[in-house]
Simulated scan of single mutants.
Amino acid sequence: MRSRPVLVFDGDCGFCTSAVRVIERRVRPRCDVTPWQRADLAALGVSAERAQHEVLWVTPVGRVYGGAQAVAKLLLSAGGVWSVVGAVVTLPPARWGALGVYRLVADNRHRLSRTAAACAPPDRRSDRA
């Protein structure tokens, strides 16, 4: 069993990678961070389809949170003021707003990145050799 949670993100997405780097520097969540492309998804209990769709937070016992709730969990893990923000994001109506904002950003991340082709949804990616 792992001793720390794991944050799984899309390592091919420039926006996602930049966001994770900022989070690591500024928020400092207490977790391991790995792109889904390098993760042992089977050991984490996560499908590649889900990992492509949303950021994931996998607890040491294997509970998986996705999207806005994964972000809330990483904020909670950081402690201090970040944990207060994370706690607020888990409660309605803030949770509903966070889900909407997360989906809006996730669905449009290809527009927010310099590596737009890599960030496009899998059905819109061109063949990359």
Rank of each mutant, 00 (worst) to 15 (best):
E54P: 01
W36I: 04
P92N: 04
L41M: 08
H53L: 15
R28Y: 02
Q69A: 15
G66C: 13
M1H: 13
C16N: 07
L7W: 12
R125A: 13
V20F: 04
T115K: 05
Y65N: 11
V85I: 15
A117Q: 12
D32S: 09
R28K: 13
A118K: 00
R63V: 15
F9H: 14
A78N: 01
A19I: 03
Q52N: 09
D107A: 15
T17I: 08
T90K: 10
R25W: 04
G66R: 05
M1I: 15
A98K: 02
A98Y: 04
V8F: 06
P93N: 12
A43L: 14
C13W: 01
I23T: 13
V84W: 12
G14P: 01
P122D: 07
R2G: 13
S83D: 06
R21I: 07
R26Y: 08
S47T: 14
P122E: 07
I23D: 00
C13K: 00
A42G: 02
T90A: 07
V81M: 03
Y102V: 15
A120C: 07
V46S: 01
H110F: 08
A118F: 02
H110P: 00
P122F: 11
R63F: 09
V89A: 15
H110E: 03
L56N: 04
F15K: 04
A39K: 07
A51E: 03
S47C: 04
G67A: 15
G14D: 02
A43Q: 10
A48P: 09
V84A: 08
Q52L: 03
V20Y: 01
C31R: 05
A70M: 06
P5S: 15
R2Y: 08
V20M: 10
V89K: 00
P5T: 14
A87T: 12
K73D: 08
V6N: 00
S113D: 10
S3Q: 10
L76A: 11
A19Q: 10
G14W: 01
Y102H: 10
H53N: 05
C16E: 06
Y102T: 08
E24L: 13
C31D: 03
Q69I: 15
K73S: 12
S18R: 08
V105D: 06
R111N: 08
V8K: 06
S113A: 15
D123F: 06
R26L: 10
V6D: 03
R95W: 14
V33W: 01
L99Q: 12
T90W: 02
G11I: 05
I23A: 10
C119G: 14
R109L: 00
P60D: 12
V64E: 04
P29H: 07
V61E: 10
A68D: 05
V27D: 04
V101A: 13
R4T: 11
R38S: 13
V6P: 01
C31W: 13
A120W: 02
